[in-house]
């Protein structure tokens, strides 16, 4: 118990926790729209595809610089989503296969580049490996500040464009009729998703960051039927997962942060699935019992 208090009063950990809360909230918030657009797995592919971007940024610049890494990550992430759509559009390959092809090939390229860096660019590559599963403990103050500021901006933008996102996702044709630039709105949404993935990979890692986009909104769906409330609950679930996962990871030394955060999210999902107010399995069971009796 003492160690926990000591841990919480450390200014460094306070930064880490703030970062993880903001990141969790941002991803939960934006994830709601990803879910409604049925693009959960595209998010996963995008996340995997950031790895070669990080490596290329390092190979070109030769320095370990977070802003450069994130720029590289965003570029290859975007390229991957473009490829997924192009393959579906120009061939008989269906969406799920297209996602699978792009995801595995981009990640394969990432691994190749990672080993290339290890072998050819000396020992100071340490840190790049952490992008795979995330390691909160190895992050420096600057990294955390990037996450916190990035997440905050994403939350801000999502709140500003909430109404536009809602209509563009729900009924794009109607939105066009209203004069809303649906194409532009979709691009902004996509940019925000990329943003979450990119700022999150250092903490959660490329393999599992997609879970933060997919699971919280899905869990939130069991509590409400209203989009506004759903995104908020989703954000809360994401924030809770972030802070608990990060804390456990930092206290138990060497435990990877990403998987722990994801496990907390999954547990919250399971709880929602069973006990959720509007659709939870157990709730539904009792409601149907009640109906039968009356």
């Amino acid at each position: 118990m003492n160690s926990l208090i000591e841990f919480l009063s450390n200014p460094n950990t306070q930064w880490v926790l703030t970062g993880s809360i903001l990141l969790g909230f941002a991803s939960g918030l934006i994830g709601s729209f990803v879910l409604l657009k049925k693009q959960s797995l595209i998010g996963d592919a995008m996340a995997h595809a950031t790895l070669p971007g990080v490596c290329i940024a390092y190979i070109i610049s030769g320095v370990k610089s977070t802003p450069l890494f994130l720029t590289g990550a965003a570029l290859t992430g975007l390229l991957a989503t473009y490829f997924i759509q192009a393959i579906v559009k120009h061939s008989r390959i269906k969406t799920d296969a297209s996602i699978g092809v792009v995801l595995s090939v981009f990640f394969g390229i990432g691994i190749v580049l990672l080993t290339y860096i290890t072998k050819n660019m000396g020992g100071n590559q340490s840190g790049l490996d952490d992008f795979i599963f995330g390691q909160a403990a190895s992050m420096v103050r600057g990294d955390i500040q990037t996450i916190a500021v990035g997440s905050f901006l994403i939350i801000l933008f999502t709140s500003l464009f909430f109404k536009e996102f809602k209509i563009a996702v729900f009924d794009p044709n109607y939105a066009k009729g209203l004069g809303i630039p649906v194409g532009l709105i979709n691009s902004i949404l996509m940019a925000l998703v990329i943003g979450v993935v990119v700022v999150g990979i250092q903490m959660v890692g490329v393999v599992l960051i997609a879970a933060l986009l997919i699971t919280p909104p899905l869990a939130a769906r069991y509590w409400t039927d209203r989009l506004g409330l759903m995104s908020f609950i989703s954000g809360i679930i994401g924030a809770l997962s972030g802070v608990v996962g990060t804390t456990v990871s930092t206290i138990g030394e060497g435990l990877p942060t990403g998987p722990l955060i994801v496990l907390v999210t999954s547990a919250l999902f399971l709880l929602s699935l069973l006990f959720g107010k509007s659709k939870g399995l157990i709730t539904r069971f009792f409601i149907s019992k009640g109906v039968r009796h009356t």
Binding site: L35, K38, Q39, S40, L41, G43, D44, D96, V207, L208, A210, A211, I214, T215, L218, G258, P259, L260, V262, L263, S266, F269
Partner: peptide, 13 residues
């Protein structure tokens, strides 16, 4: 898609 995402990330984590 979301079902696959939740299941695999949970079990893998």
């Amino acid at each position: 898609g979301a079902a696959i995402g939740v299941v695999f990330t949970s079990l893998f984590a």
